[in-house]
Amino acid sequence: MTPHTTTQPGALRRIVQRVRTDDHCLCSEEHELGVHALAVPLRNARGATIAALNAVVSAQRPSPLAALRALLPLLQEAAAELRPLL
């Protein structure tokens, strides 16, 4: 946990709902100070989420929004390519 970790149940529920809607998750320094983490779901051929694919970058590099813009299309493409294998 860090000072940025979401610990309130209501706030966590709102984040989970937003992740479901957005189909990705971006966290900034929530699990480790100094890093942004971006994740997308990995779904099998039936569409069930079975895992996640993520990238972690230094918070000293791009802003969270810049990391999202740069990495989200790449992660989504990789997840789509992996789908037939899952």
Rank of each mutant, 00 (worst) to 15 (best):
H24Q: 05
H31D: 12
L85K: 13
A11T: 14
A37F: 05
A51N: 08
G34F: 12
R61C: 03
A80R: 13
E32Q: 14
Q17A: 13
E81R: 15
A51L: 05
I50D: 00
R46M: 09
A51V: 07
A70W: 01
T5D: 04
Q17V: 06
I15G: 00
N54T: 05
H4F: 09
L74W: 03
L12D: 11
Q17W: 04
Q8W: 08
V16H: 06
L68A: 01
H4S: 03
M1W: 14
P9C: 09
S28V: 13
T2K: 15
A11R: 14
T7H: 07
T2Y: 14
M1R: 13
I50E: 08
L33R: 11
E77N: 08
Q76L: 07
A59N: 09
L71D: 02
N44C: 08
V35W: 11
V56G: 03
E32R: 14
P3M: 06
G34P: 09
L68G: 01
A39L: 11
A39T: 10
E77L: 11
A52Y: 03
T21Y: 06
R18A: 15
R46L: 14
A78K: 05
N54H: 09
V40T: 02
A37Q: 11
L86C: 10
Q76G: 00
L86H: 07
L38T: 02
